[in-house]
């Protein structure tokens, strides 16, 4: 049934988009506030997955695993900020990129030492392992629904935090005028550490949510971090709204491209040609879209106001 497949892929796209948003939110926050580029953000995603895997196996409950792993991921972010990142704020982006690339190598290896080279699967409780009938005849895995729900709650929480709390006020002020926040007598160092830890927790959460599907594995963050970069480039670096819109957009386009591009191509060319071209094009689709958007809007869809 075409329409139900389409609906399911739409939900899958939404789910990927939500995960991308969780990952991009921290990236765009650290960039918007600290003007810092963190390549190692994907490593925090990986750490979240491994923390959650171990704690789930130890406690026997995935939910307990997540609840315990979240503060750990935040603490890992805090530690990284304290050890390395804060010494780089005054440096240029090239230094950020190189040092955090070094961090990736270290963290990947540390995970290798701690958990071994093989991936770790996370068992789901029964109530998350089944399917839910959304519409008559439309079955969707309940765990993927949970991912979507969690992501929406996290996005709403983030929105609330940025717009209605003192921390959010500082974040907004910091993003538009960094020196002013300092002038207000705020402890910038603590603010930066806190923001970094929040970003780390969000990235970790994304890793925890993905791990039961793909398992926790070394280097799992290194692929998705690039997609997260594409998200924040398209959204406009530093813009939370842009990150959300672009994440959902990318999630949808990537999923839809992989599912339906060969069918579309078969309408236009021979089956054989379509089967060769479709996977390559769908793999490049989000990058092609990025190129097109940047051609017309070099600063992305929602460029933050200039500082």
């Amino acid at each position: 049934m075409e329409s139900s497949i389409f609906l399911i892929q739409l939900l899958n796209g939404l789910q990927l988009g939500i995960l991308l948003f969780l990952l991009s939110a921290g990236l765009t926050l650290t960039f918007g506030i600290m003007d810092f580029v963190n390549l190692a953000h994907g490593s925090l995603y990986m750490l979240g997955a491994f923390f959650c895997a171990s704690l789930t196996l130890w406690s026997g409950s995935f939910i307990v695993g997540i609840l315990l792993a979240l503060p750990l991921a935040a603490a890992a972010g805090w530690l990284l900020e304290w050890l390395v990142v804060r010494h780089l704020y005054e440096r240029d982006h090239l230094d950020h990129v190189l040092a955090t690339f070094g961090l990736i190598l270290c963290l990947d290896t540390l995970v290798h030492i701690g958990w071994g080279p093989a991936g770790i699967a996370i068992p789901l409780p029964d109530w998350l392992n089944g399917q839910v009938e959304l519409l008559p005849g439309l079955l969707f895995p309940s765990f993927r629904l949970l991912i979507i729900a969690t992501g929406i709650v996290a996005a709403a929480g983030l929105y609330w935090m940025v717009n209605h709390t003192r921390l959010g006020m500082l974040i907004r002020a910091g993003a538009s005028n960094r020196t002013m926040v300092g002038a207000l007598g705020i402890d910038i160092k603590t603010l930066f550490s806190g923001v970094f830890a929040i970003g780390a927790a969000l990235a970790g959460l994304a890793g925890m949510l993905v791990a039961p599907i793909t398992e926790a594995s070394i280097g799992m963050g290194n692929d998705i971090i690039i997609t997260a970069f594409v998200v924040i480039i398209i959204g406009g670096i530093g813009s939370m709204k842009g990150a959300f819109v672009a994440a959902i957009l990318i999630g949808m386009i990537d999923t839809m491209g992989r599912s339906f591009l060969d069918d579309i191509f078969k309408l236009l060319m021979s089956t054989e040609a379509a089967e060769t071209a479709a996977p390559a094009i769908s793999a490049m689709l989000v990058y092609i879209m990025m190129a097109i958007i940047l051609t017309f809007r070099p600063q992305g869809l929602f460029p933050p106001k200039t500082r």
Binding site: A280, M290, A291, G300
Partner: peptide, 24 residues
Amino acid sequence: RTRGVNFIMITMAFGQMVFYAIVS
């Protein structure tokens, strides 16, 4: 057409585009 951090990330993304294209 872009500067600074955008340039870094976009070159990275285009590089990865080739990677994924070959993988597929």
